[in-house]
Design a protein around this nucleic acid. Structure first.
Lengths: 95, 95
DNA sequence: TAAACTAGTTTATAATATAAACCAAATATT
DNA sequence: AATATTTGGTTTATATTATAAACTAGTTTA
């Protein structure tokens, strides 16, 4: 009846990150922080969790002299997100 | 962009409880425990949280000699659930 | 009458989310 | 040119949350 929800995605901030990345080719750390209105510390931790899980890839480079962290969703990330959305539907049947 | 999700509903077990109650007039503790496949302890705690928040009402009675706990969703519970589902949609836009 | 079961609650622990504190380098200020 | 501030993060400490284990109170069964 109720599908188990991927605990990695059932988190407001991580879900927001995935939501951004699923509709963008890539996104920078600062952009994601602004869009999600999160603190850098929290975002850093959650991005690392998504990366560890293989849901996103993270690339570090420089924009001029300033550091830049770029995130991309992986095929596994896309699959996990789509499964999460589907599983969620088992909970959302309206009256 | 991303709406804040009601933390009381953004929990797998509590969301499942609300999902059951939104489509039933009432439901007994044991029924909910079976449907959600949860332990009694966990369910007891989560039901109390929903009750405290005013999202459900809880009535204790007897079925013969055995105790029975019956739950119902309240109008505030219905409103909160519907808002949660709507807010969730800000995260679920597909590619 | 003792063992096992029912229907829960309370409490201890594990997991999680979050922000505060920190770091290194770049840029702006006096 | 020194120093203050800002940028772009990471690490770590704390608060919150979820969850199951342990317990309670009573009932049914052997």
């Amino acid at each position: 009846m109720f599908k188990d929800l991927d605990p990695l995605l059932h988190s407001q901030l991580r879900l927001a990150v995935m939501s951004i990345l699923i509709s963008a080719v890539e996104a920078e750390f600062v952009f994601i922080r602004e869009k999600t209105n999160s603190t850098a510390g929290n975002l850093s931790v959650q991005i690392e969790k998504l990366r560890e899980a293989g849901y996103i890839s993270v690339e570090k480079s420089f924009k001029g002299k300033m550091p830049r962290t770029t995130c991309r969703i992986t095929p596994e990330g896309i699959a996990a997100f789509e499964k999460y959305v589907e599983d969620l539907n088992s909970y959302l049947q309206k009256k």
